[in-house]
């Protein structure tokens, strides 16, 4: 059988795995929903959480589609579709594909043959698998440890949880400022992410204030994150034109 990076068999195999991922998500959604109802949680609240999560996901998911397009130029559509639907991210997949291509002497946008394609797919898969098998190995023990911590000192357990979230957010806040020093050399591009983050933060704060002040529009708090995300992203267009 003659190989091509867009051979229908590739789509068939990738489709099977993507369907399995979808099935896992639906399985966990149903189980968690039933448990929530059994715990006496309000169905309306659970529905609104699900709707907000869905709306919030749209823009980042479109960004992933852009990554699929970027990778498809060399690897065809099926492999990037699979890799970015399961575990992957653009930066990782692009590096794995590039390292392996270079190791095989496949330069630039040259399309891989079947053997090279299998090699690239293997490297991408083997290199990113750690989380998938490590979670079953350590998750139960880690959760038990967190439970013990809570029993021992509930207040510290709450601080611990908040500190983890803040630690994660702080790293990304720092990252947003990584190119600001270029402004001293006359290159203002590094200020674009800072301005975008500021717009998003302001929109989020306004939503919070409105929801707190006017009870009739309290629902706005549920959609504040997707709204601030889209507002921030939209502001990037004029900021980029202005500062580039």
């Amino acid at each position: 059988m003659e190989f091509s990076v867009n051979h229908p068999i590739l789509f068939g195999l990738a489709g099977l795995i993507v369907a399995a991922v979808l099935a896992q998500s639906i399985f966990f959604l149903i189980k968690a929903w039933k448990r929530g109802v059994a715990l006496g949680m309000d169905r309306g609240k659970l529905r609104s959480i699900a709707v907000t999560a869905g709306i919030f996901t749209v823009a980042p998911a479109v960004a992933i589609v852009i990554s699929v397009i970027a990778l498809s130029k060399k690897l065809g559509i099926a492999l990037p579709w699979l890799r970015l639907s399961v575990v992957g991210s653009l930066s990782y997949e692009a590096i794995a594909a590039e390292n392996t291509s270079l190791a095989m002497g496949l330069k630039g946008s040259a399309t891989p043959d079947a053997s090279q394609f299998v090699t690239i797919a293997l490297v991408m898969t083997l290199s990113i698998m750690v989380g998938i098998w490590l979670v079953p190995v350590i998750c139960k023990r880690l959760q038990k440890g967190m439970g013990k911590l809570e029993q021992r000192d509930k207040k510290w357990a709450d601080v611990f949880q908040s500190a983890m979230f803040i630690g994660m957010i702080s790293a990304f806040v720092g990252f947003v400022f990584c190119d600001v020093s270029q402004a001293f050399t006359g290159n203002f591009k590094g200020l674009i992410p800072v301005c975008v983050m500021a717009v998003s933060a302001i929109v989020m704060a306004i939503c919070g204030l409105l929801a707190g002040k006017f009870k009739k529009i309290h629902w706005i708090a549920d959609y504040a994150l997707p709204v601030s995300l889209v507002a921030g992203m939209a502001s990037a267009v004029p900021f980029t034109a202005w500062l580039s």
């Binding site: 960004a63 992410p193 500021a198 998003s200």
Partner: peptide
């Protein structure tokens, strides 16, 4: 530019 700045827009909010 909008999709390039998704992370700052996300972590601002």
């Amino acid at each position: 530019p909008a999709f390039d700045q998704m992370i700052p827009a996300l972590f601002g909010g």
